[in-house]
């Protein structure tokens, strides 16, 4: 099976290509990147063909699937063109930057009969899955609430450019946790209230966000989406989910399987993960969905519903009141 990476604008592309290389029956044979210097050097490093224009790459008949890692606002065109070219698609999150384009992406991939998965690797974490199984077994009784964080360092670059990212920290960091909560509860968000602002960095986008979600079944949650980890923080960020239920409480700290490295050469401390590689588990699942022609584990619709909460958060900040879902297009 042959695949291609469309754009290395999102740094996760490097992890995905490494993970794909570990799957014996998969070959990454081409990449496309608008940035010619970056693209050529990556192509030579991973020994693939290079295309400046992804449209040219999509003409290659030997390519079975693509991984889309462009800036958020460019997902839509790449996904639709890839579907039209008959390629299966793994698309970086968030699915896009507005409801209308997300719906169009879902519809087009359906029409052309290609697999379309959104890259929510946290779904594949054995820690997160362990709790999913316990919830499904009813071990906690009735669930009451979630207190969640997806923190990061300020990423800079196109992430702070609203025209490319569709927002700032709230757009970047609402969706991973939101996807897990929807998956855990089998239920959609009904109300979103948010506070967001630019408080920590001198950037044009929001860098802090507190997104409050009330689900249709009354369960409530807060997601802290802030790029609030200082530059000196020993790891990139976190995904933490603290659940309170009738029969107990659960604290999930997804990126807590670390070693601490005290490094005199850099005079810094870093936390280096030894836990399961979720990216690998995710791409493996995507490949097996293609091979066995079975539904992907995280659908375009999941991507749409998670992004909708981020969009609702921005609207709530504008209105200073809770916003009811679903949003209009």
């Amino acid at each position: 099976m042959k695949g291609a990476i469309l754009s290395f604008a999102h740094i996760h592309a490097f992890s995905y290509i490494e993970c794909l290389k570990r799957i014996p029956e998969v070959e990454v044979s081409a990449i496309a990147d608008e940035d010619e210097d970056r693209g050529k050097s990556i192509a030579s490093r991973f020994n693939t063909r290079y295309y400046r224009d992804y449209q040219d790459l999509l003409k290659s008949e030997d390519i079975d699937f693509v991984v889309v890692c462009s800036e958020n606002a460019k997902h839509k065109d790449m996904v639709i063109a890839s579907a039209q070219a008959g390629k299966h698609i793994l698309c970086e999150k968030p699915i896009s930057t507005d409801i209308k384009s997300a719906k169009e992406m879902i519809e087009t991939t359906n029409r052309y009969g290609v697999q379309f998965q959104i890259a929510f690797p946290v779904r594949f974490s054995p820690i997160v899955r362990r709790v999913k199984n316990m919830i499904d077994n009813g071990e906690f009784g009735k669930i009451f609430a979630f207190n969640c964080t997806n923190h990061g360092k300020m990423p800079g670059g196109w992430f702070v450019d609203k025209s490319l990212a569709g927002g700032g920290a709230i757009m970047d960091h609402t969706v991973h946790v939101m996807d897990i909560l929807r998956w855990y509860l089998g239920c959609e968000a009904e109300y979103v209230y948010a506070e967001g602002d630019t408080l920590l960095h001198n950037i044009p986008s929001d860098d802090v966000g507190l997104v409050s979600v009330t689900f249709e079944n009354g369960i409530f949650a807060t997601i802290d989406t802030s790029w609030s980890r200082p530059k000196s923080f020993p790891i990139w960020g976190d995904v933490n989910i603290y659940m309170t239920a009738e029969k107990g409480a659960v604290e999930i700290e997804v990126f807590n399987q670390n070693l601490s490295l005290y490094n005199d050469k850099t005079m810094s401390v870093s936390w280096l993960g030894w836990g399961s590689n979720m990216d690998f588990l995710m791409v493996k699942s995507f490949i097996s969905s293609i091979k066995e022609n079975k539904p992907v584990e995280v659908t375009g619709y999941d991507g749409l519903k998670a992004m909708e909460v981020a969009l609702a958060a921005y609207r709530s900040i504008e209105l200073q009141e809770p916003v009811k879902l679903p949003l209009e297009e």
Binding site: F144, Y193, E195, L199, L210, F220, T222, T244, E246, A249
Partner: peptide, 26 residues
Amino acid sequence: HKDYGLATIRFKSRAMAQVEITWAHP
């Protein structure tokens, strides 16, 4: 005998805070 709350507070200085209070642990 279960109570739990999540609060978001906005300050006049624009600072913001999130507070979790629980009386729901076993």
